[in-house]
Design a protein around this nucleic acid. Sequence first.
RNA 1: GGCGCCGUAGCCAAGUGGUAAGGCAGAGGUCUGCAAAACCUCCAUUCAGCGGUUCGAAUCCGCUCGGCGCCUCCA
Length: 483
Amino acid sequence: MSLKIYNTLTGGKEVFAPINPPKVGMYVCGVTVYDLCHIGHARSTIVFDIIYRYLKFSGYDVTYVRNFTDVDDKIINRANELGIKSSEVAARYIDEFNTDMGALGLASPDVEPRATGHIPEMLEIIESLIEKGKAYELNGSVYFSVRSFPEYGALSKRNIDDLRSGARVDVDDTKKDPLDFALWKASKPGEPEWESPWGMGRPGWHIECSAMGRKYLGVTFDIHGGGKDLVFPHHENEIAQSHASSGSAPVKVWVHNGFVNINSEKMSKSLGNFSTIKDILKQYHPEAVRYFLLTSHYRSPIDFSPQAITDAHKNLARFYDLLSTGMELGVTDGSNADPSMVEKFRELMDDDFNTATALSLLLTELKKMNHLRDDMAKMKKKSDDYKNSKEKLLAGIASIKTLGGVLGLFGLEPGEFIEEFKSEKLKEIGMSADQLDATIKARAEARKEKDFKLADTIRAGLDDKGIKLSDTPEGVKWSVSFD
RNA sequence: GGCGCCGUAGCCAAGUGGUAAGGCAGAGGUCUGCAAAACCUCCAUUCAGCGGUUCGAAUCCGCUCGGCGCCUCCA
């Protein structure tokens, strides 16, 4: 079986055939750095993080480029509000982006170019477009002539004549056609600006991706990604510019991720219903956020809710519990992963990165391994049965760890995941580890004295605070409950 | 107005022509002083509704109802 990817351009799943295998070039639209990132940005970044990881897992030599848009109207507005330079705004939010995405465990792209570092490359494309009669200069700005590009609308399935230009698009008298868009904008006083053949100015939004994609990945590359909302106009315009300038299509496969919704509505600033990554990470473990985002297909909308992330966390905790057993038994890496599991995982992921079913495969394996673990507890350690079971268990755990790793999961030491969450809980309820210890000891004393009433009262008291006690053969353990 | 997506159990969610994965919640059981965790069993004759195509449809087609997105900056 081979990897199939849904291509927005053709509207269907296609067998993935890189231009120069095993090399793969992938460009993903990053963020405009004028504010904190919300969970929607996290989704997009995580989706492409997983595509990146999976392509590499599949043996491709991937060059992953993700840009920062660091010159833009919104950044300028923010800079004016704060009374600082727009470059400072950009620097600040690039830092914040890196902090947030780092917390979410994202693999770094191979190149993270910034728009402002590629002005000459943009100017080169713009000049070539003017030469070819695809763009024109007016009052120091340069516009792309949409009607000069017959394929315009192919990506977003739009007919030029259906675009109600003027109704919702600002009619700009300086443009020859309302559909035309800016490649270069003459700068106003106080705005960031660069020299150009048409005077001082700054780039339009779309041209940066055309320039940086071409610079790092070539005139035509394999995959271009971004959020669904970028299909039109951003990616449509990008195709027009790049294609018109080079004479060939810039991208083979266009991949777009769906939105994160709140109560079935798109999360957005204008609706005021967004949650920043920082806020979410105050309440939930970053890996639970990643797990949650993987439970539905990347192209579908996903509804953000506390319940959904809690569910994700519960499942993660189950995995880490098994993984800690694996540690005790000596699993260190995935070298002895079960080949048939890996094969199944591949089949699922090869079908347009179906992470939801891939997770269910891991959950099914989890259940099998827990079953085995329970059985082993009843066996004699020197018996052949025990040895055989242990071998299977180790292979199962190794498979889960390896395949989970492709999804960016289970990277922590099991103890770390569990302890991290527990110490957060103690902080939340204002109890020290020593206090909890003493309480647990008091209950143990009561149990020893067969004073079960007192023991149960103590346990219930902790339970009210969200702390669950378990009496296990290895002693009393505690964990965090959600309900 | 144009283009497009979605509607699967109490909740979340796969499956897109061969007879409904998985998770959460719930019920019963094993274990336990009792619990918890883990495990076992059960939990959609049915996929918004109505027609049609087919030997066969949640899956294809048409219509209806409901929800959402893009067409303006947006992951």
